[in-house]
Amino acid sequence: SSGGSSILDRAVIEHNLLSASKLYNNITFEELGALLEIPAAKAEKIASQMITEGRMNGFIDQIDGIVHFETR
């Protein structure tokens, strides 16, 4: 797709992000992006959206560029 990722790509990214949230206590956007094979800024945006929508527990430290995952 030309304008970003398809629905399937997005679903795969979100699935992998949720998997990462179970493996890590926290991770930088750079590391997360590398893990998900997407730019760091996109990793931040998707993580932020999932947390806001209540689909993933955690919070974002924008100063240090880190996602902190919280286990249920």
Rank of each mutant, 00 (worst) to 15 (best):
I60F: 03
V12S: 12
T28C: 04
P39G: 09
A34N: 11
H68R: 08
R55N: 04
G58H: 02
N16M: 14
T71W: 08
L35F: 09
L23C: 14
R55D: 02
L35T: 03
I60Y: 03
G58L: 02
E14W: 04
D64L: 15
V67W: 02
F69W: 06
G33T: 03
E37W: 06
A41L: 08
I13M: 07
G3I: 10
L32G: 01
E44L: 14
I7Y: 14
P39N: 08
A47P: 00
V67N: 01
M56Q: 01
G4P: 14
F59V: 08
L17M: 14
E31Y: 06
S48A: 13
E31D: 10
I63D: 09
A47M: 06
R72Y: 10
E70T: 07
I13Y: 06
E44Y: 10
R72G: 13
I51M: 06
G3Y: 02
I63V: 13
A11R: 06
E44H: 12
R72S: 14
E31Q: 09
I46A: 04
L32A: 01
N26T: 13
I60D: 00
G33E: 05
K45P: 02
E44D: 03
G3R: 09
Y24L: 10
I38H: 01
S19N: 14
G3K: 10
I63H: 09
S5Y: 01
G4I: 12
I51C: 04
S1L: 06
L18V: 09
E30I: 13
F59H: 11
T71A: 09
G3H: 12
I13A: 05
A40T: 07
G65H: 09
E53L: 06
I51K: 01
E30C: 07
S2A: 12
E37D: 14
S5W: 00
K45G: 07
A41E: 14
L32C: 02
R55S: 05
K22R: 10
H15M: 15
M50T: 01
I27S: 02
G58V: 03
A43I: 13
D64H: 15
D64C: 15
S6E: 15
R10W: 14
M50P: 00
T52N: 14
E30Q: 09
Q49K: 07
K45A: 15
I7L: 13
E44I: 15
K45M: 15
L23A: 08
K45T: 10
S6K: 12
E70I: 09
M50L: 11
T52A: 15
I60S: 01
L23D: 07
G65Q: 09
H68Y: 15
D9L: 04
I27G: 00
S5F: 03
F59W: 15
G65R: 10
D64K: 15
K42V: 15
L8A: 11
D61I: 08
A20T: 08
N25W: 08
M56P: 00
L23T: 08
V67K: 02
L17D: 02
E30P: 04
F69I: 04
E53S: 08
A34H: 09
S2R: 06
K22T: 08
E53N: 07
Q49P: 00
L8N: 11
S1G: 13
S1C: 13
A43G: 02
H15N: 14
N26P: 07
S1H: 11
S5A: 13
L32I: 04
F59K: 08
I60M: 04
M50A: 04
E31I: 07
I46G: 00
M56I: 15
I63E: 12
G33H: 03
F29V: 05
I38P: 00
A20P: 02
S21L: 08
S19M: 15
I51P: 00
H68E: 05
I27D: 00
I51A: 02
A11L: 12
I66Y: 07
I63Q: 11
E37C: 12
F69H: 02
I13F: 04
G58P: 00
T71G: 10
N26E: 14
I60T: 03
A11E: 13
I66L: 08
T71V: 09
D9Q: 06
V67T: 02
H15G: 12
T28I: 02
S2D: 13
I38S: 01
S5P: 10
N25Q: 14
K42A: 15
L32N: 00
D9W: 03
I66P: 01
E44Q: 14
F69G: 02
F29Y: 04
N16P: 03
I13E: 04
Q62H: 15
S1W: 01
K45C: 13
S5H: 09
K42W: 15
S2K: 09
H15V: 08
R10A: 08
G33N: 01
R10I: 14
T71I: 08
E30D: 09
T52G: 10
R72W: 10
H68S: 06
M50E: 00
A43K: 00
M50D: 00
A43E: 00
L23S: 08
E44P: 01
A40M: 07
A47W: 03
I7P: 10
N26V: 10
S2F: 02
E30S: 08
S19Y: 09
E30W: 07
Y24N: 05
S6M: 10
G4S: 12
E44M: 14
P39F: 04
